[in-house]
Design a binder for these strands. Sequence first.
DNA 1: CGTGGCCTTGAAGACGCTCAATTCCGGTGG
DNA 2: CCACCGGAATTGAGCGTCTTCAAGGCCACG
Lengths: 242, 242
Amino acid sequence: MPVSRLTADKKGEPVESTLEARAELFQDAMGFGGLGRDQIEKLAALATLRRFSKGEMVFEQDQPCQYFHLVATGLVKVYICSSSGYRMTYLLARRGEPLNLIGPFTGDPRFLCAEAMQETQVAHIPRHDFVGFVAQNPILFNNIMAILSKAVDSANSRLIDMVEKRVEERLIRVLLTLLDKFGAEIRLTSSELAELAGTTVETTLRTMARLRSLGIIESERGQVKIIRPASLKNPERLPLWV
Amino acid sequence: MPVSRLTADKKGEPVESTLEARAELFQDAMGFGGLGRDQIEKLAALATLRRFSKGEMVFEQDQPCQYFHLVATGLVKVYICSSSGYRMTYLLARRGEPLNLIGPFTGDPRFLCAEAMQETQVAHIPRHDFVGFVAQNPILFNNIMAILSKAVDSANSRLIDMVEKRVEERLIRVLLTLLDKFGAEIRLTSSELAELAGTTVETTLRTMARLRSLGIIESERGQVKIIRPASLKNPERLPLWV
DNA sequence: CGTGGCCTTGAAGACGCTCAATTCCGGTGG
DNA sequence: CCACCGGAATTGAGCGTCTTCAAGGCCACG
């Protein structure tokens, strides 16, 4: 329940970086395809890197948005936090993934927080610089809308899952998603998986124990390994409740 | 479970309308503030009106997006539908509210469906015309992002509610939202309220019976009337489970 | 006047949360 | 090197909330 509190106004430590390295980052980043090299460098010139230790907040809930954030190295989890302290992880972002596509446009406080899960570096662009740049490169509109489209569909799909799917199915879906993105070896604790699936640690553990006894996964402290992904993909054919 | 099926390719009946009337519509519409009269009329010139009877689909799930849709009269519900037939209402749109802000940009099929809840007229703009117009009026991009921002926050907020709030609290939240938007007399069936709150008809009925016995609402067939909104707004102070 | 949709209520049962106790592991400090 | 501590994993028991199934009544509309 207690969330680590750091200085609210200034987050992370500045990191030296070359324009070249930053351009490289934006070159491959999600949502920036279709830009010429000159524009990429212009964007890179607006950015600065900051480093965050494990557990540090990149930005917090209910604070006005100052920067556009793009992960350079490491891993960041973006989550929503209810008044009672319940957390629900929304996104696990690694190199090249933006943390807040909407925030910079309105500047308003939102529900989301972002927290570094490892030693991490994040590129910051002042929000007005970012919005101005997008206005000059309308192709970014389409890119951004495409990403938002997926984000909204994903949120809606999770909503439906919360209503009609049992924890087991939701957890399997989480595992499959992580498998696609990070490979078969997933370095997350059960508590982190629980926040992704929208359930409690205990229920997650119990469900994982069942999957383990079926030989579908292996798990040790802070790590899950998917052994037989095919068994997860056909939940209809394999009655997991056995 | 059975959803009314109509012709898939052509939906609704064309309706004659004056350019003036359409310009009037876009003038007040959500997301089109800040445009000059000339641009409004240019937009109106791209649009055509179509009428839909109660229960008719304006667009369906998993079909490519052809048009941008804006409600002119009546009421449309936008919902997501799971494979097993579970529906979750996402938006109740009346005059001036857009049905699909994202779809036109990507054109891809999405999860959403839209269904007329009354006799309704909807303005259609071919998606490429709409996207081209937005590109020429970048202020619209900010407007759209502002709306999407609210939509995403709302979806996230509902996700949290689904996990940690009981049906009663979710239903109260739905009622308060409807109160703000439509006033104290809400013309919806319990089944429709259930799809908004993410629960079943029976549970909705039971909860409404409790609220009714407390004198907070009155309800008859297909209609709910909120008598003491203040009692709903302080759910902490009034123990509803009494 | 019949039929279908909507409202109502009861009873049973399942799913998952909460609380609690225990073990295991890694890191830290003496 | 060993002891301690905090976080993580595990497992059990109890129970509350909702869903599900079922049955009946009411109202409107054709």
